[in-house]
Simulated assay, not measured.
Amino acid sequence: MHIMEGMLPPMWCVFWFAVSAPFFIYGLYRMRKIVNSKEQNAKVMLALCGAFVFVLSSLKMPSVTGSSSHPTGVGLGTVMFGPGVLAVLGVIVLLFQALLLAHGGLTTLGANEFSMTIVGPIVGFLVWKLCRALKVNKSVSLFLCAMFADWSTYVTTSFQLGVVYPDPHGGVFGAVVKFLSIYAVTQIPLAIAEGLLTVIVYNLILNNDLWKESALS
C-alpha cells in the first residue's frame, strides 16, 4: 500500500472498485450527517482527520515491488467519527496522492481504498470498541486501534497482491506470506510510531476542549 499504477490486471481493478463502492456510498451518508450536525467543531475536526491521513500516508518508503510502506493515519478519524466516513476521506486523499505525488494510481484506487480506508478503519474501530468495553485505558485503546488499523491494511494489501502474483510453489498463501514478511520489516515499527502519534494528537484535541469523546462515532 499504495499499490502503484499498472500492478493489478483490469479485472481486479474493476473488482476492487465494485467492492469499495457500497462503503463509499455509506461514507457519503455519514459525512452528510457530520457536516449537518450541530456538534461544535465537527467540520474542522473532519478536515483535521482528512489532513492527518494525507500527511501520514504521504510519508512513503519503498517496500514490496510495485507498492510502498507508510503510516495510514486512519485511527484518529475512526475513533472520532466511526469507520464509515474514512471511505470518502480516503478517496480524496488517494486521488490527490495519485495525481500530485505519483503515489498509488487511478486504476488501483479501489484496491488502495479498500485496504487503507475500509478494512483498516473497520478493524481499528472493532479494536477500539472491544477495548473500551473491557475498560481498557483510553490511550491504550486508541494506540491499539491505530496500530491494528495500520497492520490490517498491509495484511489486506498482501492478499490483494498475492492473488494476482501467486508464488510458483506456495501458491496464493505462499505469496501472501512472502509479502507480509517484507512489509513487516518497516510496518511493525511504523504502526507502533503511528499509534503513539495518534494518542498524542487525540489527547491534545480533548484536553483543549475541541471535541467530546465519541461525539459522532
Results as ranks from 00 to 15, higher is better:
residue 172 V to H: 06
residue 115 S to T: 14
residue 170 G to T: 08
residue 217 S to R: 00
residue 16 W to Q: 03
residue 211 W to K: 02
residue 4 M to S: 13
residue 162 G to K: 03
residue 193 A to E: 01
residue 159 F to L: 15
residue 73 G to C: 12
residue 67 S to N: 05
residue 154 Y to Q: 11
residue 149 A to K: 06
residue 188 I to V: 12
residue 129 K to D: 02
residue 108 T to R: 09
residue 135 K to N: 14
residue 188 I to C: 07
residue 124 G to K: 06
residue 49 C to A: 10
residue 185 V to D: 01
residue 165 Y to C: 05
residue 80 M to R: 03
residue 188 I to P: 05
residue 158 S to E: 05
residue 136 V to H: 04
residue 98 A to T: 05
residue 205 I to T: 04
residue 208 N to V: 07
residue 200 I to S: 04
residue 102 A to P: 02
residue 174 G to P: 05
residue 25 I to D: 05
residue 154 Y to R: 08
residue 37 S to H: 03
residue 204 L to W: 05
residue 187 Q to P: 05
residue 138 K to Y: 12
residue 61 M to V: 10
residue 88 V to C: 14
residue 11 M to C: 03
residue 51 A to S: 12
residue 72 T to F: 03
residue 76 L to M: 12
residue 51 A to P: 00
residue 177 V to N: 04
residue 8 L to Q: 07
residue 5 E to Y: 05
residue 4 M to N: 10
residue 53 V to Q: 07
residue 143 F to M: 08
residue 15 F to W: 14
residue 16 W to K: 08
residue 26 Y to A: 08
residue 29 Y to G: 09
residue 97 Q to V: 06
residue 191 A to K: 01
residue 91 V to G: 03
residue 84 G to A: 15
residue 55 V to G: 05
residue 17 F to Y: 14
residue 76 L to A: 10
residue 119 V to L: 11
residue 176 V to Y: 01
residue 169 H to P: 02
residue 122 I to C: 03
residue 94 L to T: 13
residue 26 Y to K: 09
residue 159 F to E: 00
residue 7 M to I: 13
residue 44 V to E: 09
residue 188 I to F: 11
residue 63 S to P: 04
residue 74 V to A: 13
residue 137 N to C: 06
residue 128 W to N: 08
residue 181 S to I: 09
residue 152 S to D: 01
